[in-house]
Amino acid sequence: MALKTTRRSLLAGAAALPAAAAAASAASSLQGESAPDLSGTSILITGASSGFGRLGAEHYASLGAKVFATMRNMPRPEAEELRQLAADKGYDIEVIEIDVTRPRQVEKGVRKAEEMAGGAIDVLINNAGISYAGPIEMQDMKATEHTFETNVFGPHRMALAVLPGMREKGSGLIFQVTSQLGRIIVPAYGQYSPTKFALEAMGEQMAYELAPKGIEVCMIEPGGYPTEIWENSRRRTETLLERTPEELQATYAEMMGGIMEAGGASRETDPMDIPRAIAEIIAMPKGERPLRRGVHPTRIPQAAINQVCEQTQVAVLEGIGMPAIAKAVYNR
């Protein structure tokens, strides 16, 4: 990322960007006029057994990328299915075991991917994530630690593993798959929002620190999509309820009833929006990629927050003598 690149004007007007306009723009971008070419790009994805990770592995490979699809608890049917798909379609997909909560497995898996790639990984997609539903008071330390280990410490471990190679190469791109709930709060989603807020903050700080190294960071903020995370969350929440005192459950009975019914039932959206948005950003010229991209066909409620945050951060960075970093990170 060239630090001398001129930043496009972002501060015109004091009003925040209306969410509806941002949603329309994002929907148009998702559809795109032509598929990007990712030939020669090495991409490592966590949580590739299902959801955005599984869809992304196939999509990026179909665009020519060399994909390292990682997942935990191998051997497992999802790994064999992905290997068979790669063989049938001639895709360059390698399936590697990585549980992001296990430091030694992260280090071993990343080193294996780098050896197979012949050098540093070009793109890391921190996609793996989990959730337990319920108010914070019902989130015991077992659930809390599990959520932070997966959603925050896991991406941190992955970044630590790939960054030496990226720094030596002088380039790289890290995606943090966060959420709308990493910028706004909806009650009774447990530690999900706190962890996604943390992932957003970690990604933004990394963006500032890594810009001089030629490495970019982008937060992808999905809205509601029908992926396996909802059913997985329901199962985890049921185990949490089994060890939650009945008196405490009764205190939040109405709230829990609503959140358990909500799940992913009404999400008539296309999960492929996420891989398409990520592929589009990968294909952008270095130095022109966005720090954040909200993704949903109709609702991006965090758009105004993102714009205010951007304005504030640019002012802060310029005020403390870091205008080059402000220009590099917010070059749009």
Results as ranks from 00 to 15, higher is better:
185 I>Q: 11
138 M>F: 13
166 M>E: 07
158 M>Y: 10
135 P>M: 08
190 G>T: 01
168 E>F: 02
131 S>K: 00
183 R>T: 09
146 H>M: 14
147 T>F: 04
174 I>N: 04
155 P>H: 06
133 A>N: 11
162 V>H: 06
155 P>D: 05
188 A>S: 13
126 N>E: 14
128 A>N: 12
172 G>N: 04
142 K>R: 13
153 F>G: 08
190 G>H: 09
163 L>I: 12
139 Q>W: 14
170 G>P: 10
170 G>E: 04
168 E>Q: 11
147 T>S: 09
134 G>I: 06
141 M>E: 15
152 V>E: 00
184 I>L: 15
127 N>L: 09
148 F>K: 00
157 R>M: 11
181 L>Q: 08
142 K>E: 15
174 I>D: 04
180 Q>L: 06
128 A>R: 08
140 D>R: 12
182 G>M: 05
132 Y>R: 02
166 M>F: 11
189 Y>L: 15
168 E>S: 09
185 I>Y: 14
162 V>G: 07
162 V>A: 07
182 G>H: 03
145 E>P: 01
187 P>C: 05
155 P>K: 08
129 G>V: 02
177 V>I: 15
180 Q>P: 01
149 E>L: 03
187 P>H: 00
150 T>D: 03
156 H>N: 12
140 D>I: 13
127 N>H: 10
159 A>Y: 02
178 T>F: 03
147 T>P: 01
134 G>C: 09
190 G>R: 07
164 P>N: 12
190 G>M: 03
154 G>N: 07
135 P>K: 07
177 V>K: 07
133 A>L: 14
136 I>C: 04
132 Y>M: 09
134 G>K: 06
176 Q>M: 14
138 M>R: 09
141 M>I: 15
182 G>F: 05
132 Y>L: 09
176 Q>W: 04
148 F>P: 02
175 F>M: 12
152 V>G: 02
